[in-house]
């Protein structure tokens, strides 16, 4: 199923509406929300005719910023070849984003963000294709996230991220991820650098 342009735009719009900070804001750079997660591709697009995505892993760091928060993250996901005609490859998405958060009731926190990043694909082939074994591509998207705080510092979360990779044949995918998050005060040197 191709994730349509209209749905992609809708999700991006929802994410952008959340950008102005609507939750009580921590001081800029005062805290870090570090999360680790497992990730799955939940859509089936044209390229999945040749490749089967497997479970991946993601790491994300978020810090309060003017108007919401800034985030940076990376997601690693292997894709296995379904046929011998193509090589397997690993996809590493590194992104940065800007978003906002909302706390409707304790201990729930909702957030959304716009993201831009690079998707690097490393192909497991013996002979380089035209001299290179990897490709990098611009990827744009948005994400919505539900967090439940278990204690002052620890929580769990689930996230849905819609992404468009701007290859010649654009690849629209939705990835779902879930995992643990840790909220810590930013060390002084980190605040100093980020400020």
């Amino acid at each position: 199923m191709r994730f349509g342009t209209a749905r992609f735009a809708l999700l991006a719009l929802v994410a952008s509406m959340a950008v102005p900070g609507v939750a009580a804001q921590d001081a800029a750079w005062s805290t870090l929300r570090i999360s680790v997660a497992g990730a799955e591709s939940v859509t089936r697009v044209g390229m999945h005719t040749w490749w089967r995505p497997t479970t991946g892993a993601a790491l994300r760091v978020e810090a309060p910023f003017e108007g919401g928060f800034l985030e940076a993250g990376a997601r690693f996901m292997p894709l296995g070849a379904r046929t011998d005609a193509v090589p397997s490859y690993t996809a590493l998405l590194a992104w940065a984003g800007w978003g906002g958060a909302w706390r409707p009731v304790r201990p729930v926190r909702l957030s959304a963000a716009l993201r831009a990043g690079m998707l690097r694909m490393d192909f497991a082939e013996d002979i380089a294709f035209a001299g290179v074994r990897s490709e990098s591509e611009l990827t744009l998207g948005g994400a919505a996230r539900l967090e439940i705080v278990l204690s002052g510092r620890l929580g769990v979360f689930a996230e849905a991220a819609a992404e468009r990779t701007l290859t010649a044949i654009e690849i629209d995918q939705v990835h779902a991820s879930a995992g643990l998050l840790l909220r810590v005060g930013a060390p002084r040197w980190v605040r100093e650098v980020l400020r």
């Binding site: 690079m118 694909m121 192909f123 294709f129 990098s136 591509e137 701007l166 290859t167 010649a168 044949i169």
Partner: peptide, 22 residues
């Protein structure tokens, strides 16, 4: 600078397109 318009994984398939700048 990362580019757009590469074939990405499609370069190994019948849908392959020319590469783009890096």
């Amino acid at each position: 600078g990362n580019e757009v318009g590469d074939p990405g994984p499609y370069r190994y398939t019948p849908l392959a397109t020319p590469n783009a700048d890096r």
